[in-house]
Write a protein that binds this DNA or RNA. Structure first.
Lengths: 333, 333
DNA sequence: CATTGGCACTCGGAACCGCCGGGTGCCAAC
DNA sequence: GTTGGCACCCGGCGGTTCCGAGTGCCAATG
């Protein structure tokens, strides 16, 4: 495809993103030095329109990029410049003293939304395969038991259960020691057998009470914390609302649906390190036909992304998403 | 104050909340059976206006409640009817099988926003005074150590630290045992001395490495998880945006500022069990002059609240907030 | 004396209208 | 292929008009 036409497409996208108004041949020349006359630009524009990359909202008004136009832009025109060293340093200093993973994710998503001026979301990291380090049982109340599982990888999972058959504290101390012997040092996906053996070795009268607890331990070991999402910058959506307005309502609803978002993120199928872009109608989801997603994986099965109007600044979006994905990838290893 | 005037005030508030438009004497009669004529209503309205409870947006238009008017409404007119048993049951079934506290708070805030159609927020519960149950050290990487502290009350706190003086795994196993002897069974606010003694009893060469860890344990014991907030229903704000529009931007920014929100919640000073309402200008915060907060405590120092436009449905707001505060109060005890 | 029906008056907002300017497509010329 | 010129298009903006919901006031009434 003619490089000048691509250049013009780029200029149109750029102008439209910043002004939010259809851009015409003259005003394009005002802001970009294309080295050709307005008439030429007009001719090229009408070709671009035939190809479906741009469109006119009304007869004889400026042109606006279509979804396909944005796609061509990110694929063939946009050059993703890496962040400046200043920006990199800012990211590091802001993230490096995050205490735990929760805090890291929270800060990351916050930063992402501030740098891109879009809604940002980060999926909880998928647990790595790891051995069980410790199990702890804490009797919180008469029939409430807190079960804590700690892995070598540093993950801490907890769950409180209502006991159907409460026993006294000593019982659970003994049970804890039994659990430790049964699962400590095992891979998390290999605790089942150890637990089964523990149950089998228990006096029949105690088996039900024990099974209550072992079930939870098994669930915790298999638990997929990655099915949670942290989000920030919802306000940015409303800010750009002025134009992609009404259609924003379903979007806001969508943001409350963690399950849907999770599916969305996985469906993007961004391998760790790669950035994927979904533009407008490319999204299967009906609420997203006016929106774009820019996402990246930072570990197998774990993603982060930004969401904004199709007319968003893809260049900084992509580079920021990539930078942060890399950063937390490194941080977590 | 004349009961009929209060009744009229109530009717005005009610109509304005549902129609979002200034309400005049005639249309008021259409929707409420007040037993008097329009002229009488007009007279009463002009009195209410003199008292500053309602106001006219423009000369000869309908009336709109002022902040003071809403205040009078919630204080003297609104009758808070408890939730129906159906609603109560819905709350129970939705919340009862929440696994851990995180999950409980998440569901609560979600429910709160859905029932009231406002933005909902819940503060993390302030830790109860409790004894240390367990301390665990997990070496996650070469110079990264995960420190976990579990209390009798069932709280699990964790933090990862970058070690300035990394030692081998055995060292930390020994240290863990030392820590357990030093702090296990102590009140969380009384771990300092035990830790100090442990450091003192350590060989001088090891003291720095040990202190790195004991500092974190002390910090965790003193840590105030209550300074976090879970939020839901941000979209509801944008939905009501149509009218309290522009002034919504700072509000959305505010929602990103957890620290400010926390101060806000504590400043409301809602004792556990009581519901507090802050209307419009009553809020010190400038971003909130168009908004109202309805909050309640569910434990000393821990609150939950909804935030919406001053013209919100205070009746269901107050009763829902109260019901949920009571529910998680009971749940946590 | 509070209440009521009547009446003149007000004014914001919707509907209507005409102009303006940025934009287009086409064409002849280079 | 590119360019300048030109006729034409039409959405949006400012100005004007008109309508109706709403008010305040007043004289009459039980």
């Amino acid at each position: 495809m003619d490089p000048r036409k691509l250049q013009i497409l780029g200029a149109i996208v750029e102008d439209f993103v910043s002004t939010r108004e259809p851009v015409g041949s003259k005003s394009l020349l005002d802001r970009h030095d294309l080295g050709v006359s307005a008439a030429t630009v007009r001719n090229d524009m009408s070709v671009l329109e035939e190809e479906g990359l741009i469109t006119q909202p009304h007869t004889s008004a400026g042109r606006v990029p279509t979804d396909k136009g944005y796609r061509a832009f990110v694929d063939h025109v946009a050059t993703i410049k890496p962040l400046s060293t200043g920006e990199r340093r800012a990211i590091s200093t802001f993230l490096e003293d995050a205490g735990d993973v929760d805090e890291l994710l929270f800060r990351t998503v916050r930063l992402l939304s501030q740098l891109t001026h879009q809604v940002a979301m980060v999926q909880y990291p998928a647990p790595q395969q790891a051995r069980v380090r410790h199990v702890e049982l804490v009797k919180v109340a008469d029939s409430l038991l807190l079960v804590v599982l700690i892995t070598e990888a540093g993950r801490v999972d907890q769950r409180t259960i209502a006991l159907a058959q409460p026993r006294d504290a000593e019982f659970y101390e003994g049970l804890r020691d039994g659990l430790l012997r049964a699962v400590s040092g095992r891979e998390v996906n290999d605790v089942e057998r150890g637990l089964a053996r523990l149950v089998a070795a228990t006096a029949p009268a105690d088996q039900d009470a024990v099974r209550e607890v072992t079930d939870v331990v098994a669930a915790l070991a298999a638990s997929r914390t990655e099915d949670r999402i942290v989000m920030a910058g919802t306000g940015n959506l409303a800010r750009s609302a002025a134009d992609f307005a009404r259609d924003m309502e379903p979007l806001l609803d969508l943001l409350e649906e963690q399950l849907v978002l999770l599916r969305l993120l996985s469906e993007m199928g961004a391998e760790p390190g790669t950035v994927q872009v979904r533009i407008g109608e490319e999204n299967r989801n009906r609420s997203l036909t006016q929106a774009s997603l820019v996402g990246a994986g930072y570990r197998a099965g774990s993603h982060l992304a930004i969401l904004g109007p199709t007319r968003m600044d893809y260049v900084t979006g992509i580079s920021t998403v990539q930078a942060l994905a890399r950063y937390i990838h490194r941080f977590l290893e």
